[in-house]
Design a protein around this nucleic acid. Structure first.
Lengths: 201, 201
DNA sequence: ACCTGAACACCGTTCAAGT
DNA sequence: ACCTGAACACCGTTCAAGT
């Protein structure tokens, strides 16, 4: 709810959408809610974006910027495997910074919208390796699926715990996963794929 | 639209839902549409299922049965790597048999619903390998993400082409992917992951 | 037990009209 | 150019009431 709504830019809309996403989650990120938050009528949003999916693609591009996250840049001079691992870690970190981000990014990719900077960065890391273009593309795509799937599960668990124990009847309260398991699961998958790429390269 | 709607079972509902999914796609699989198809009021569905997500979980369990698909059973006596590859192929085949299936299964998994028989089958294949339980679980989960991500992309392309070229302005008409590329992409990712698991085991 | 009828509380999107 | 006002065509879900 802006107090003095001077003028709206697409950037304002996307930025506020990302804030609403963090505060309320994807199911409550509706065009009407977003409009209210911007102090504007829902129909006003359609002057800046053709539809909701395109708006979500802009949000996805904010979640995964083209440049690596601060402190997560892969050091130059490292080999492709180390760089690829660093990029995967950076991707996970960028996703974990926002609620329901994996779902937003996945659906954007599934619809073929957005710049898909994640794929571009993974491919850049692979460019140093002994792969032809087709293979590098396949490897990047495989890694992206792995990252999105893993983070998606991770974020689902958070949301699950947010709903409370809700142990109705004989339902077990929680899988009781030890601290850091998600990070270890992630590391395992990434390492396995990279090891496989190494043998195939 | 049933003509003689004797009595409705949850099975009838799920089966019809799967048919509607194939014919109209996930966006048009609404409770109202499904009710119409069954010759019943929308509210009637809520006697058989508590909500739409649970119904979709039942649909997901129909798409991925607990037993391997006919002709895709991994031969006994093969090593774990061959079995795992066979299970991955069977999973892909089962998914490709129904429209928007990857999205249905993914969302069901993301919500922690359904029996998730896919994961169980992948774990069974890994049971023959040199992995402890935790590692086998991680490997299965990684493979599942890979399969779902790849098939999701594949199904998106089909739907894309279904919408026609729609080359408005300077949009490229189609990525012009050669026949069988999707299968090769899939094979590459699966083989790479298995190779990595082999080195790590 | 199984389903109808009718409502509740929403959605995304369009479009003439205002400024 | 940018936004309002009002509508259109839907959703999922609930719940009293019927049989």
């Amino acid at each position: 709810m802006r107090v003095h709504p001077r003028k709206l830019t697409p950037d304002d809309v996307a930025r506020t959408a990302l804030r609403v996403l963090d505060e309320l989650g994807l199911p409550d990120l509706t065009m009407r809610r977003l409009a209210t938050e911007l102090g504007v009528q829902p129909s006003a949003l359609y002057w800046h974006f053709p539809d909701k999916q395109t708006l979500l693609a802009a949000v996805a591009d904010r979640i995964l910027p083209l440049a690596p996250a601060e402190g997560n840049e892969p050091a130059a001079g490292e080999d492709w495997a180390a760089r690829l691992h660093a990029e995967a870690d950076a991707l996970r970190a960028a996703l974990l910074a926002h609620r329901d981000s994996a779902e937003v990014v996945s659906s954007t990719i599934a619809l073929g919208l957005g710049a898909n900077p994640a794929l571009a960065r993974l491919r850049r890391a692979l460019a140093d390796g002994p792969f032809d273009e087709v293979t590098a593309g396949r490897a990047a795509s495989t890694m992206l699926h792995l990252v999105l799937g893993q983070v998606s599960l991770e974020q689902q668990r958070v949301q699950y715990e947010r709903l409370g124990v809700r142990a109705a009847q004989g339902e077990q309260p929680a899988p009781a996963r030890p601290e850091g398991s998600d990070a270890e699961d992630f590391r395992f998958g990434v390492a396995a794929l990279i090891a496989g790429l190494r043998t195939g390269g």
